[in-house]
Design a protein around this nucleic acid. Structure first.
Lengths: 196, 196
DNA sequence: CCTACCGATCGGTAGG
DNA sequence: CCTACCGATCGGTAGG
């Protein structure tokens, strides 16, 4: 007795479609009826798979936060590499997560304010912690004499900021692969930080 | 007979308050009743000063577009300066417009998609033209051997992108003045483009 | 997963 | 500038 079958994939389909709609129109301007139509269900049926509209947003935002943390950790595990090299890898990792799912990234970057408390505060805390990781790298690099900048905290902030506009212009079907984009961005941004 | 008095300033007050609300919550999530309350009127009274919710958005978006164009033009009028210097001035001018009204800038950067046609297309056209101005500078600078980058169009795009995240982190009451922020950003970004 | 529906709220208008 | 109100639409639920 009872269901069982396509529950998992239905939910994933709903999340994915919702992400695309949230990206294109914003969370507030996207209605559950619109989502239902796009996914081929009646409005009320959505609630068999999803508790609320905000629950979808919550999953997207915190899911991507996990991706960013995992990518950063993998990119910066110390192999005795110079700090500048680890920073370069962190930049490229960040870009790769952004390019992997542009829609989800846009939602992550812009729509999180529609989370209600306490989720909203939790999210901001995560973001701050992530930024602190970059800040630490820039500070270490500066202390080690590998980077030169008047204010490491400012440099780290604007460095990350430089990357986060990417979902606005990046096209997955463009002529540059994600890795090429990541490499060029790192090159362009680090060129201003590295000695020489 | 008839009114006359505070019409102008009321409208400006409504625009300003709406801009702050649009920034904080997004256009779609901001109701006219909320705006009315914030401005000390009843909901219906708003429509004595304003034709529609979208009209406010239209004014903010296109008003700021004018500011950007004017600032760019003033910053790049040729005094026989090197291209790199004109690019630096364009960057600083862009940052100064952004810092001058962070709320309006945020709306300009993010909420324009809630414009309906044909305004939306007009807006995108303006943005493209503005970006083309930066692209031309980077291309000229590269051709003149003042800048070095593998792909001027890519560099111009990401350069501007780097600046546009500013409203997300910039605090008018921070320790850096707008001019200092503008200068540091230009320094950090151009450092990676300039020879040496 | 659908039908039918709830109360709330939306942008905007009429008439003064 | 207010009161009173319009039709539409919203997120979500009940009951099957």
């Amino acid at each position: 007795m009872s269901v069982a079958a396509p529950l998992r994939s239905r939910k994933a389909q709903i999340d994915g479609t919702a992400t695309a709609l949230f990206r294109a129109q914003g969370f507030a301007a996207t209605s559950m009826r619109e989502l239902a139509l796009a996914v081929g269900l009646e409005a009320g049926s959505l609630y068999s798979h999803v508790r609320s509209k905000e629950e979808i947003l919550h999953r997207v935002c915190f899911g991507l936060a996990e991706d960013f943390f995992a990518a950063f950790a993998a990119a910066t595990t110390d192999d005795g590499q110079p700090v500048a090299q680890r920073l370069r890898q962190a930049i490229e990792a960040h870009v790769r997560v952004l390019t992997q799912d542009v829609a989800a990234s846009t939602v992550f970057l812009h729509e999180w304010r529609h989370l209600s408390e306490p989720a909203r505060t939790e999210f901001v805390t995560l973001r701050d912690r992530y930024e602190a990781g970059f800040r630490a790298l820039v500070q270490q690099g500066t202390a080690a004499g590998e980077l030169h900048c008047p204010d490491p905290a400012f440099a780290a902030l604007t460095l990350l900021a430089s990357l986060n506009w990417l979902p606005t212009w990046y096209r997955p079907d463009g002529k540059l692969t994600p890795d090429e984009v990541a490499h060029r961005l790192a090159e362009q941004l680090l060129g201003g930080l590295l000695f020489q």
